[in-house]
């Protein structure tokens, strides 16, 4: 899972806004966000190095102004970066010509936007078929494919509707369908559910997880909602002032926040809902483990009853295939469940 075969890798990426960012960036290195601002520049992305593995779901989490949206736009080169490099599927993004970039987007990338970004003059079908039309697919083919994705996102029967005739949730389904029309390898979602009401948001998250399970794409998902991040992510990158504070699995972030800033986010989180047995599993070296194993993908909360009734000090943890992945200290798990004394 952890970036064995990265499809996107960002190396020391910088994005500065200001008068002459290219010449300033050299002297910005090592400076804090505040120092850079005093020099008249905004460091939207500050020395970010991050990798996204094939098939991984990376959530970039941060408050507004933290640079998360800029980062995802750098990865899709909607914005040109100031310094560093971004390699997507073996190609250096910044060295692509306009034509190559257009080709890359037509074959490999899809993106979903916070306020949908639908074309008001096109109906659902034509909006979804838009990327196919841009790459010159013939009318019949693109209609066929568009109907397929519309069905996938559950908008069957609404093909002829115009965006303004749909609810927010439905509009975002159109946005999702459009981004999937070309069968992209990499799927960017920029706060896709932030503009929606809480109940709809929940429903759309479930829908998203269903699609994710079906399609198995590489996903970069932006959100400002920590709970959403925990619910969806394989790994979470937490950003502040343009820099990544910590990039790790939800379990690790909750258990071992790297900075004070990250710890504040985790404070109010019900950790037992987030932490999995896998996250607590330690190497077996020398611990006496015996008896039946607990499943690695069960949360501490799901194991609560068993943890309370258990007598063993260490419980074996096994993955879905029955393979032993380690041992879990019962006391540690109980502390997470009950809160440490």
């Amino acid at each position: 899972m952890s970036a064995a075969e990265p499809i996107i890798s960002c190396r020391n990426v910088w994005k500065l806004f200001g008068q002459k960012p290219e010449s300033f960036v050299a002297s910005a290195k090592g400076k804090s966000f505040e120092e850079i601002r005093r020099a008249g520049y905004i460091a939207a992305v500050r020395d970010v190095s991050i990798e996204v593995g094939r098939g991984e779901l990376l959530v970039v989490m941060g408050l507004s102004g933290s640079g998360k949206s800029t980062l995802v736009r750098c990865m899709s080169r909607l914005i040109d970066i100031t310094d560093g490099e971004i390699i997507v599927d073996g190609q250096n993004l910044m060295s692509l010509s306009e034509k190559e970039l257009i080709g890359l987007r037509r074959r490999k990338m899809g993106m979903v936007f916070q306020s949908f970004g639908l074309l008001p003059n096109r109906n659902v079908l034509d909006n979804v078929a838009f990327p196919l039309e841009m790459r010159g697919q013939d009318r019949h083919d693109r209609r066929e494919r568009a109907l397929e994705v519309i069905k996938l996102v559950g908008l069957e029967g609404r093909e002829e509707y115009f965006p303004r005739e749909l609810s927010g949730g439905q509009q975002q389904r159109v946005g999702i369908a459009r981004s999937l029309a070309i069968e992209p390898d990499i799927w960017f979602l920029d706060e896709p559910f932030s503009a929606l009401d809480p109940l709809i948001r929940r429903e759309m998250q479930d829908e998203f997880l269903r699609l994710r399970g079906m399609l198995g794409k590489t996903i970069v998902f932006i959100t400002h909602d920590f709970d959403e991040a925990l619910r969806l992510a394989d790994r979470i990158a937490i950003m502040k002032d343009g820099a990544v504070e910590q990039c790790d699995t939800p379990d690790k972030i909750v258990l071992k926040p790297a900075t004070e800033y990250v710890r504040k986010f985790t404070e109010d989180v019900e950790k037992s809902r987030v932490v999995h047995a896998r996250g607590l599993a330690q190497p077996i070296n020398g611990h006496a483990v015996e008896g039946p194993a607990v499943p690695a993908n069960a949360t501490v909360l799901q194991l609560a009853r068993q943890l309370v009734n258990e007598r063993r000090e260490y419980l074996p943890v096994a993955d879905a295939g029955g393979k032993l992945v380690g041992a879990m200290n019962r006391q540690e798990a109980l502390d997470i469940l009950l809160g440490s004394a």
Binding site: R73, S76, L78, I102, G103, R105, R106, M109, G110, M111, F113, Q114, S115, F116, G117, L118, L119, P120, N121, R122, F130, P131, E133, M134, R135, G175, R178, S179, I182, F188
Partner: peptide, 25 residues
């Protein structure tokens, strides 16, 4: 801006951007 970005991410050329994204919007 998101409509423009959606146009770019759909792989529009400059002419397609003007004709299919900017002018209709």
């Amino acid at each position: 801006s998101e409509v423009i970005e959606a146009g770019h991410m759909s792989g529009s050329t400059r002419w397609q951007m003007l004709r299919h994204v900017y002018l209709p919007s």
